[in-house]
């Protein structure tokens, strides 16, 4: 687990060190790339009524604000939200990216608490369902930004793959934990056996005490 988390931390660290305005500029470039690759998706999103979603990657110091609908889409980064969005989605960066690409089942991630949604869910459901209609390939967009040989792109690719694998695994582990927590209390037979053992121990101790008392009584008689 630890070595799988390592590249994630690395990527997190890279992003963490970038100031918000730089991230916002990078996001703008990324969005333009994505728009060129997925024109239908962007048309569908900008055709909605105006919506705003706060994105809080739990392993980054940054917050993102996604605005779509009303004819435009933009993504900005900030240290804090200046106004509270009606919906906020929280989770590890990897899970959020996997959701964006449609590679992680959002409901399962929600059931397992891998992601958390706060606020009204209308915007997030609309976004999720619209994203579901298109195969967003983040890596291709990033590669196009940095050039295919760029080590940043390669590292991100690796990170993303591992992130998604571990998000899947975490979801399953969480499910296993829920299963274990919900297991029925020990069945009656087991409890009876335990009580029987306790009774045997107790009657053994009682027998010993009685024997001691008898001995004491006998010695009493003697004396």
């Amino acid at each position: 687990m630890a070595e799988l988390e390592f590249p994630i931390l690395l990527a997190g660290n890279i992003l963490s060190r970038l100031p918000a305005p730089v991230l916002t500029r990078a996001a703008a470039v990324l969005m333009r790339r994505l728009e060129r690759r997925h024109p239908r998706l962007f048309r569908a999103l900008s055709a909605q009524s105006q919506m705003m979603i706060g994105i809080e990657p739990s392993d980054l110091p940054h917050r993102f604000l996604l605005r779509f609908g009303g004819g435009a889409i933009n993504l900005t980064a900030a240290a804090h939200f200046t106004q509270a969005p009606t919906t906020t989605i929280k989770g590890r960066l990897a899970a959020l990216l996997a959701l964006l690409e449609g590679r992680l089942d959002s409901d399962a991630a929600f059931f397992s608490r891998e992601i958390t949604v706060i606020g009204n869910t209308a915007a997030i459901v609309m976004l999720r369902n619209t994203l579901e209609r298109d195969a967003v390939d983040l890596l291709a967009a990033i590669t196009a930004m940095f050039g295919p040989a760029a080590p940043v792109a390669q590292r991100m690719a690796l990170t993303l793959e591992r992130h998604i694998a571990s998000a899947h695994r975490r979801a399953e582990q969480r499910h296993d934990a829920f299963h274990a927590a919900r297991r029925e209390p020990a069945p009656l037979a087991t409890r009876c056996e335990r009580l029987e053992r306790e009774m045997q121990t107790l009657s053994g101790r009682l027998a010993r005490i009685e024997a001691q008392a008898r001995r004491r009584g006998q010695s009493g008689k003697v004396t």
Binding site: T116, I118, N120, H175, A181
Partner: peptide, 30 residues
């Protein structure tokens, strides 16, 4: 979806349908 909302209430996550409280779950619950 437009009638569903989640709120963080202390350590719990509360879910609402309209203004009806559907559930409150701890961090350890699905």
């Amino acid at each position: 979806a437009e009638q569903v909302s989640y709120r963080e209430e202390g350590n719990q996550l509360a879910s609402y349908l309209g203004d009806v409280l559907m559930n409150r779950v701890d961090a350890s619950e699905g």
